[in-house]
Nucleic acid binder design. Structure first.
Length: 742
DNA sequence: TCCCTCTAATAGGAACCATA
DNA sequence: TATGGTTCCTATTAGAGGGA
């Protein structure tokens, strides 16, 4: 009835895509964007941005703008792809993923209690559910009120027997990371340690836990350490004459913990003096030393009212910092850090340093096989001592528009005084010759040393124009930047030019003009097409200028005008919906099982009888064809239906044959059309016979004329067409109309 | 779905009492 | 007199139920 009502949503997708990408890529809006991400986290109670927002959004009573837009975009397979690691650490399995059917009240309770991960509710090995009292103790007994419903659900549905074994144990619990080094055989097994001090970061309490190892049980994959808990002595209680050092290097005095909620009551230790013992799985022990009892540093604090104490050789500040950074690196969380520093003018003694920076740029800016990065780094090191370069570059794309499309690029250094190195590679997603050429220029700039001058010959006028445009307006607005095709590549090119102080000139060279160097570059580009390891730009390299970009189906970041590009998923979605529409079932059936020759249909729709590629006449002809093929041509009956006042009731006859009613069904059956089709077919039949007679000589033994005349290709089957036409005969029409109405 | 009211459950402090 | 246990009260919270 209203076939275009869905377009409302499609228009929303287009505008929201644009608005959101502007939000996440504009410097001024960055704090707002981060705040919106935080609200999203608070709303969905999911650490970071979930892959499938739609799964969780149903639980929210009034979703915010961002969560609504993200769930709309996800219906079109478009996802937000952050350039920074955004999320909340402290566990591996979000509770909303573990318990899929939580109510909105459960969400409220979880938010109030700050419980986001199931890891916060299970034992250290991830196998057993803690009791509610234990959970409360872990949270400093801050929870008031009765046992929440979601916890009862966990107890009833997700545990087995009285031992509280989880039905789905967490096997990637955060205390069991992979071991870093090989363990020597002699250290396997149970060991009692004498003087080993360890520290680690406790994600739940957000503090550094310090302990003295009591027993260490080592296995090949991990070890369990049982330690006596020690607390740092409050330094403000130390008399003034001790605290001459700066606050960061205050001595760390450790006293045994008298027993706190961390104490693991299940441990049975022989040593009754230990009041607070902790057991934890470790993969790498971070240890520090204490001063001996006879040491001056230890004796300094003899006068303090402490029965038993140790003095660490490292200050608390350093230990805390180390514990937290080890924890972060084990969980692959990198905090938003400033981008790699700009390169200074290299002096002779720190060449290695600059080269290392060049390699780190290559390493972090590209996503590809490590071997390709190594090749580029090697080229960069060979170019390192030169300043003036000359390159020929070329890109090549084959089978564009098909799934077999391959895009390759290549370049060669042609200055005779310098090493004549060359490079070729391939790239994927959104293939175009512009993209391949841009990639060639990008890889050239990546291997150039700082302060170099280079001249690049390319046959792509588009690249030269884009380059000069970007060079002419260095402060391009984010909205304009995001509308440019392949903006990731061009951003990187401009970044390299400004940060490495490069002087680059692009020169146009005519393609296929027998220039030897250009032909070499062309050959390299063609060779690059067959490279199996594609190179793409890492969008996370730009985490300073943009917070997030959009990707399609988690495959590739869309680095082009989103509003234009979004037509592709929108149209395919509309097509899918049309195909699944039950009233179009006959067409669907015809597509799958019918006699429609799609190749010829395509050629018929695409055929152009004029010389010009576009013309107003051609578009009229094509719209006629399309309307006729989809039965939407404005024939008499449709005009009558749409304009009842203009077209009076009664049959409107076909203007050409004046026999039958003018309907879409009639067009293919019309007698006068049939006459012109027959005459056309006779003409082509004659042409074919002439052609066969001319080409085929003595080796054709059969009678050409009779064979062609008998072929089904040139028959119109008047009986079949007439039988179909008779269904529409005047006396039957009222009956059918009646049937339709009832 | 939101808001309000009511009830049950709990933490924590004050008061009180028993004991070393 | 210090300490630990018990009881009572108040504040807070979760969750059920009802109405708009």
């Amino acid at each position: 009835m209203y076939p275009h009502i869905d377009n409302l949503m499609d228009l929303l997708v287009k505008s929201q895509l644009n608005a959101l990408s502007a939000l996440f890529n504009t410097d001024i809006l960055r704090p707002i964007a981060i705040q919106k991400l935080d609200i999203l986290t608070q709303e969905l109670w999911y650490p970071g941005i979930p892959r499938d927002t739609n799964k969780y959004i149903g639980k929210i009573s009034s979703p915010s703008y961002l969560s609504k837009s993200l769930s709309l975009l996800q219906q079109y397979q478009i996802h937000l792809d952050p350039t920074i690691s955004y999320g909340i650490i402290g566990g591996h399995t979000p509770i909303v993923e573990y318990l899929p059917n939580l109510s909105s009240n459960d969400y409220k309770s979880l938010r109030n209690k700050r419980i986001m991960y199931i890891d916060q509710l299970v034992s250290a090995d991830g196998n057993y559910l803690l009791t509610w009292n234990e959970v409360k103790r872990l949270n400093n007994n801050n929870f008031k009120g009765p046992k929440p419903n979601w916890f009862k659900l966990l107890e009833n549905e997700f545990t087995l027997s009285n031992y509280r074994t989880l039905t789905h144990p967490l096997n990637d619990n955060y205390t069991i990371p992979a071991r870093l080094q090989q363990i020597p055989d002699q250290s396997l097994g149970n060991h009692k340690k004498r003087n080993e001090w360890t520290y680690h970061w406790d994600a739940r309490l957000q503090t550094c836990i310090i302990g003295k190892t009591y027993i260490q049980d080592t296995d090949t994959h991990s070890s369990i350490t049982i330690m006596e808990h020690y607390l740092p002595y409050n330094n403000s209680l130390i008399p003034n004459n001790f605290t001459v050092q700066s606050s960061h290097s205050l001595p760390l005095i450790l006293t045994p913990c008298p027993g706190c909620h961390l104490n693991d009551h299940s441990l049975i230790l022989q040593d009754a003096r230990i009041k607070c013992s902790i057991s934890m799985r470790t993969n790498r022990l971070s240890t520090f030393n204490t001063f001996n009892h006879l040491n001056q540093e230890h004796k300094k604090f003899k006068n303090l009212p402490l029965s038993k104490y140790y003095v660490s050789t490292k200050p608390l500040h350093q230990i805390r910092h180390s514990a937290y950074s080890i924890y972060l690196s084990q969980h692959h969380v990198n905090i938003v850090t400033p981008i790699i520093t700009t390169l200074d003018i290299p002096s002779s003694h720190d060449q290695n340093h600059v080269l290392r920076q060049l390699s780190s740029v290559i390493d972090s800016a590209l996503l590809c096989n490590d071997n390709i990065k190594l090749i580029l780094i090697e080229i960069a090191s060979k170019f390192f001592s030169f300043t003036n370069f000359q390159f020929y570059s070329d890109g090549s794309v084959s089978d564009i528009g098909t799934i077999n499309s391959k895009s390759g690029f290549g370049w060669i250094q042609t200055d005779p005084l310098l090493p004549q190195l060359s490079f070729s590679g391939s790239t994927v997603f959104f293939p175009s010759s512009f993209k391949s050429e841009s990639f060639a220029i990008l890889t050239i700039l990546l291997v150039l040393p700082p302060n170099a001058t280079c001249e690049i010959f390319t046959d792509s006028q588009n690249c030269i124009d884009t380059f000069n445009q970007r060079l002419g307006s260095p402060s391009i607005s984010p909205r304009r930047r995001l509308k440019q095709n392949n903006f990731l590549i061009w951003d990187l090119i401009m970044w390299l030019i400004s940060h490495h102080h490069l002087t680059v000139q692009l020169r146009k060279v005519k393609g296929h003009s027998n220039n030897k160097a250009n032909d070499q570059a062309d050959a390299l580009a063609k060779q690059g097409r067959y490279s199996l390891d594609p190179i793409i730009v890492n969008h996370k390299f730009f985490h300073q200028s943009s917070l997030a970009l959009f990707n399609y189906n988690h495959i590739s970041v869309i680095d082009r005008n989103l509003r234009k590009w979004s037509n592709i998923p929108i149209y395919s979605r509309i097509f899918n919906m049309a195909m699944n529409n039950s009233s179009l079932l006959p067409i669907n059936h015809q597509i799958t099982y019918g006699d429609i020759d799609w190749i010829y249909t395509k050629q018929w729709i695409n055929s152009n009888p004029f010389d010009m590629p576009t013309s107003s006449k051609l578009s009229k002809i094509q719209s006629n064809r399309l309307k006729k093929s989809t039965f939407t041509y404005p024939t008499g009956n449709i005009l009558q239906r749409n304009y009842p006042n203009l077209y009076p009731l009664g049959r409107i006859h076909c203007t050409e044959c004046s026999i039958d009613e003018d309907t879409n069904a009639h067009i293919g059956l019309c007698l006068s059309h049939r006459r012109s089709i027959t005459s056309l077919l006779t003409k082509f039949k004659k042409n074919l016979i002439d052609l066969l007679r001319k080409e085929g000589t003595s080796n054709i033994s059969f009678d050409i004329e009779s064979r062609v005349n008998n072929s089904n290709m040139f028959k119109v089957f008047p009986d079949v067409l007439d039988a179909a036409r008779l269904l529409d005969s005047p006396d039957q029409i009222p009956k059918r109309r009646k049937g339709r109405v009832s």
